[in-house]
Design a protein around this nucleic acid. Structure first.
Length: 789
DNA sequence: GTGTAATGCTATTGG
DNA sequence: AGCATTACAC
């Protein structure tokens, strides 16, 4: 395609942004303003101008975005040119560079990439060794603390020396966090492993400590582009800044209004302060929205106007006003699902649209189940994005652990995973012994196992023999690595490890499916095996593909990266986070409720609440034609039915853009056509005497709302109603007193010593002469009152 | 050491 | 309600 042609497809600002290739550029791109188009055309433009694709680095946040962009560039400039572009996620691009430069940092070039599970498991091991309580030091939060440190480029040493951090940790009763961080880092290093954050952290170390390396990449990447710049963290910011320091041909694209990854360290200041970093910055604002109706754009502007921290920008559109945004109330989460399913059904009937034109978005993954069930009932096909990806399934991780071990026997997490799977008589005790010795001697478990002369292992002859067999097996895999093609070795490992046999013998539905998944993995490896290798310069080379090559970047793949089945006509279900960058004609945003969206955890700080609001902005602006917001009045959480109030966000849209309806699902939900979104009055939970009982909550009249009687909502329900607790249990909860004699169907007669907890989770401590003292949850316990004393 | 029953914890968001 | 870890029996 000639240059003129694609430049004509751009509006004035877009065109200027594409043509301004030299020097620092910031493109503030409102939702739906053609950001991807500008980015791809910009790269195409550079190539047409004669810039070598090897000199262009484009960083994205998802593999999918990178792939999409690459293929769009291909259609403009042709495949050979596009192939040589450095384009990918931060993690994948720098993993590639790190593998190339690994020795400088003391890592093997085939280092393992630990995924979150590996990291957590390692943290658990360390906690055990340090005798720290994992209820105080929750592995997940320990990991996010470590992750935050790495993302801010704080080394373990710096962490331990920083008074402020140390105080923080003491205040949160976790004074040993720094020690855990230190141990964690050194264990990863000894295992030849990097976690996700290391891919950026170690890149920073590399660029900091090896000026020649920095120089090399600075001159290699003469043009640097960063997509979704508002989502970069400090570590990424520094990398980008350093790489672009020589030529300053840096172009960042982003939208502060769509910054939704603060929770994992993204720093919105990176975009807000970009001007300070580059005084001669040229800024382009893409403000025309091509995606959505005027109603949606204006409503989205309403929402974001409630945020204080933002760059000035006016998103507008030439599109029609379109229909109003629908808002529906459902009685429960299940009914919300039904309502959505029925609405989709009706849209399809009335407007001749397809399943793939719909997306259902939610705040948390747990919300998907009710929606799935409802869609299944109406035979509407759907696809869930997010959740467990193929490579996170247990059976897949098991087999891959063998592959990892073959490539890098020091990989401790892989070792622990399969040393006794399938069971071969190497149990917990033995593994612990090895682990302790490894820790004491500051070496890897593999080293301990394979050098009994240096590290005497106090195990029996039988155990020692079993260990020997395992070692021999792994060694043989290791030797096979360079001389066997990926597929034959993978198949061999699946066989001789016993995994295939283990799964084959399980004839349950799940077992069969696990077996099939293994087959699918092997097929994928076969496909990989038969695809050509590419060298450093992007040239195709004749060479055998090996298994370690295959597993290298698997940890970086996510669910969204599984073969794009775009041809499939299915409704998309995903979290709002996962929906960023996507668009659909019809978008449902479900669970518009206080404490869910905005999340309860966001209510304590302005910054967090503003991020939730941006999240809502992102959700709404995914819609092209019709947005439909839904909320439920009650929903199950941890097995309990809780009462929910409509989200405050609903009030932040001017009513003229909204159309309230009871929903299209069942007659029961149709009683009302309008309601008061949310009562601003603060109210206290009622006393037990006036509180409606759990099973009454099922009656619809309890929940009747009316715009003319704003207090009804408040007056009608309690904050926490019980799950349909049986009438018997309910009576029990209300009547039971300390000192009463009760009868339990299993424990016999006993005496009530104590009653505590808030209804319906009231607990009683009862002493049974036969079995001793027991704590009973009254809503479940089958207790009968015998007498009052 | 292995397998099963009981217990207890959890659910922001993700590369 | 579902899942992972733990406790206990074999």
């Amino acid at each position: 395609m000639a240059e003129r042609d694609y430049l004509n497809e751009l509006n004035d600002v877009q065109r200027l942004a594409v043509q301004h290739t030299e020097g620092p550029v910031m493109i503030i791109a409102g939702a739906g303003s053609g950001k991807t188009r500008v980015l791809t055309y910009r790269i195409a433009h550079l190539l047409e101008k004669g810039v070598d694709p090897f000199n262009i680095l484009a960083l994205t946040f998802t593999n999918k975005a990178a792939r999409e962009m690459k293929s769009r560039i291909e259609t403009i400039v042709g495949g050979t040119e596009a192939r040589n572009l450095w384009m990918g996620t931060f993690h994948s691009v720098f993993a590639k560079i790190l593998r190339f430069e690994a020795e400088k940092l003391g890592y093997p070039s085939n280092f393992t990439i630990y995924d979150t599970d590996d990291s957590k498991s390692l943290i658990k091991t360390i906690l055990k060794e340090e005798q720290l309580d994992d209820k105080v030091y929750k592995p997940g939060s320990v990991l996010s603390r470590i992750s935050a440190a790495k993302s801010s480029l704080i080394s373990p040493t710096a962490y331990l020396q920083n008074n402020e951090i140390q105080n923080d940790d003491k205040m949160s009763a976790k004074p040993k966090l720094g020690i855990v961080y230190q141990k964690y880092a050194s264990r990863c290093f000894k295992s030849g492993a990097m976690d996700f954050d290391d891919l950026l952290y170690q890149t920073n170390i590399l660029l900091r400590d090896f000026p020649d390396v920095l120089h090399k990449y600075q001159h290699k990447f003469r043009y640097v582009m960063v997509d979704e710049y508002q989502d970069t963290n400090f570590s990424q910011y520094v990398i980008v800044k350093k790489l672009a320091a020589v030529f300053e041909n840096i172009c960042v694209v982003g939208d502060d209004a769509q910054s939704i990854y603060g929770f994992r360290g993204a720093n919105i200041q990176n975009i807000l302060n970009f001007e300070k970093d580059y005084p001669d910055l040229k800024t382009f604002k893409l403000e025309q929205n091509y995606r959505s109706t005027k109603t949606i754009v204006d409503a989205a502007n309403n929402i974001i106007a409630h945020n204080r921290d933002q760059l000035k920008k006016e998103v507008w559109t030439d599109n029609d006003a379109g229909t109003k945004i629908k808002v529906s109330r459902a009685m429960s989460d299940n009914e919300e699902g039904a309502l959505i399913a029925h609405a989709i059904f009706e849209y399809k009937m009335n407007e001749q649209v397809h399943d793939k034109d719909f997306a259902v978005l939610y705040r948390t993954n747990a919300q998907s189940r009710a929606i799935e069930e409802a869609l299944r009932k109406l035979n509407i096909s759907y696809r869930i994005y997010g959740g467990l990806s193929f490579y996170q399934r247990k059976e897949i991780k098991d087999l891959i652990a063998y592959f990892r071990l073959a490539a890098n026997p020091a990989d401790e997490e892989a070792l622990k995973r399969v040393i006794n799977y399938p069971t071969r008589g190497i149990g917990k005790t033995t593994i612990e012994k090895i682990s302790v010795i490894a820790s004491e001697r500051d070496t890897s478990m593999w080293d301990v196992m394979t050098n009994p002369a240096h590290h005497p292992l106090p195990v029996h002859g039988g155990t020692s023999e079993k260990l020997g067999n395992f070692i021999t097996m792994i060694k043989s895999f290791n030797i096979g690595l360079p001389k066997t093609s990926a597929y034959s070795l993978a198949e061999h490992i699946a066989q001789s490890s016993g995994i295939l046999k283990e799964l084959y013998s399980d004839k349950s539905t799940e077992g069969v499916s696990r077996y099939e998944n293994i087959q699918e993995l092997l097929n994928a490896i076969k496909e990989f095996d038969e695809s050509p290798a590419v060298d450093e310069n992007g040239e195709l080379i004749e060479r055998m593909r090996t298994l370690d090559e295959f597993i290298q970047d698997i940890a970086l793949l996510t669910d969204a990266d599984e073969k794009d089945k775009d041809d499939l006509d299915k409704v998309s279900l995903m979290t709002i986070h996962a929906a960023k960058g996507l668009e659909f004609p019809y978008v449902f945003v479900s669970g518009m409720e206080e404490n869910l969206f905005p999340s309860q955890l966001s209510l304590n700080s302005r910054a967090d609440l503003e991020e939730e609001r941006r999240l809502f902005y992102v959700a709404l602006t995914r819609a092209e034609k019709q947005a439909h917001l839904t909320f439920a009045v009650s929903r199950y959480k941890w097995g309990n039915l809780i009462h929910c109030e409509p989200s405050r966000f609903l009030e932040e849209i001017e009513p003229k853009y909204l159309e309230f309806s009871g929903g299209a699902s069942t007659a029961r939900t149709n009683v009302e056509t309008s309601f008061e979104p949310r009562q601003k009055t603060v109210w206290k939970p009622k006393t037990p005497e006036t509180r409606p009982t759990g099973y009454q909550a099922k009656e619809k009249k309890t929940y009747t709302h009316s715009s003319t009687k704003p207090n009804l909502t408040r007056a009608s329900t309690s904050q926490i109603t019980s799950k349909p607790v049986g009438a018997d249990q309910l009576e029990l909860i209300q009547k039971l007193q300390v000192g009463m004699q009760v009868e339990h169907e299993k424990f016999g007669n006993g005496k009530v010593l104590q009653i505590e907890g808030i209804m319906p989770n009231t607990k009683a401590t009862v002493f049974f002469p036969d079995v001793g003292q027991k704590q009973l949850l009254l809503k479940f316990a089958k207790l009968r009152i015998i007498s009052n004393n």
